[in-house]
Design a protein around this nucleic acid. Structure first.
Lengths: 258, 258
DNA sequence: GGTTGACGTTGACCTAAGGGCAGGGTGCAC
DNA sequence: GTGCACCCTGCCCTTAGGTCAACGTCAACC
């Protein structure tokens, strides 16, 4: 004569695993049933009932930590708590939906985490004959700019596009790429820096506007991160940039100093 | 001269906590940057770049464990993986939505985890003069029936409704409630069992149909759990039920024997 | 020069809801 | 008597970090 179900039977009837039942015992959600002679748990109908109630709420998304109190509260409190849980679930669903939409944009529109317009600029760079390394570096700089200085990302892109419309500037920039392999003391660097600065000063729209809302030092750091990205890998480029910046400053341009 | 940002600055720029950055280091998602003289981590632009990439994907819901491989894979693989993640996210959203709907029904329609029709029957029980304890016991039996034998829940309810339409059966059932306080050996129990069995045999629609799809022993256990719920709290009721079942069996009815 | 407060370092433990495994005992059928 | 299925307890594992402790470092202020 069976005076109750074993834990495996009880779990199967309720539709959960043995581990889950024991978990509920440990949390105090379902009282431990009596044991038989060999220490096995024996479940009667009242235990099954409790198990079913807990499971129903758990499946509906009620946190286990709240189910105990919930099942012992009066109907109006019960309903109020359920409303609360429902609200929280709705919130989480909205969060996840927003995440999925971000993901969708990442997977479909933004190749490599950048918007279409930036990708177009990068493609144009490649078409103009810039090497893959330089394009990759520009991609990284754009990514950094978007993340660190989002408010000027669009104008940053616009200046980049405009600079690509200037054949002479494109030529100078290509020489800048070559300069990567030069010695940092190479005299051609100073010459190139002068030419670049002249060109930039000739069309002020190519220059970054001074930062608006951020604190001065914070902006300088962000500017430095974006504009000097990868500089430590090529000292000659660092020197080139420093010289250009110095000339711009000499001409009265407000270039953040890190 | 700063040769890099501290972890706090880097975290603030990327929009995460220090702990998160260190977590990414521990998972190998972002390489440890160089340390300065006092052991502080110093972040350069390439570190920031990587941090931004990881963060973008993590915020979109990509599991951290996959981000490392993802960022090192080629564009088509990248897109395919993102699609996969998106599919999983959609699945989770659907799961949560289903949970919320269940919860909504629990909070609004089903008082105490039961559908409206069951609640109506229980209210009718109370109106007919059955005590709160009995009503509560019936509520529990209904709950158990729905969870353990869902395929016959509707017919179970129908039989219950029909039995409430039979004034004589209602009277006998009320005497059965009284029997809870009798001694198990009380001769009135046998008398009552006979009367109940006669009444049930007079209208076969009041009897449960034999189980269809389940295995014999499984069905018997489920039947026993529902029909003998709370019997162990009142031995006289156990005896009453046993006698009724015996008479039904004697009349050729297929009553599961546990 | 000492103190204070903000920031950095490591490490251990915590979350929700169980899953997996080890090591050992039990019940039942061949 | 042996195999197999089931049960017991206890320990560690999962996500994406949070919290706390104990301690070192930096810059400013008195």
């Amino acid at each position: 004569m069976a005076d109750g179900l074993t834990i495996g039977q009880a779990a199967a009837f309720v539709g959960v695993t043995i581990k889950t039942v024991r978990h509920y015992h440990r949390l105090g959600l379902v009282a431990e049933p009596e044991r038989d002679g060999s220490g096995y748990r024996r479940y009667r109908s009242t235990d099954l009932l409790r198990l079913v109630q807990v499971r129903t709420l758990a499946e509906a998304g009620v946190p286990l930590a709240e189910i105990g109190d919930l099942l012992d509260s009066d109907p109006e409190e019960f309903a109020a708590s359920l409303h609360d849980v429902e609200r929280r679930l709705t919130q989480r669903i909205e969060d996840l939906t927003a995440r999925r939409d971000t993901l969708h944009r990442l997977a479909h529109g933004d190749r490599a985490l950048l918007p279409d317009r930036a990708c177009a600029v990068l493609e144009r760079l490649a078409e103009l004959g810039f090497g893959p390394d330089y394009v990759a570096a520009q991609r990284e700089a754009l990514l950094l700019a978007r993340a660190l200085v989002p408010e000027i990302f669009e104008s940053f892109l616009t200046r980049l596009e405009r600079s690509l419309d200037d054949p002479e500037l494109v030529e100078l920039t290509k020489r800048g790429v070559d300069a990567m392999s030069w010695d940092p003391g190479d005299p051609r660097i100073e010459e190139l820096a002068s030419a670049l600065a002249d060109r930039l000063l000739a069309d002020r729209a190519l220059l970054a506007p001074p930062p608006a809302s951020r604190s001065r030092s914070d902006a300088a750091i962000r500017y430095g991160l974006v504009n000097h990205h990868r500089e430590d890998e090529a000292p000659s480029i660092a020197r080139l940039n420093a010289l250009v910046e110095a000339e711009l400053r000499a001409a009265g341009i407000d270039v953040p100093r890190q």
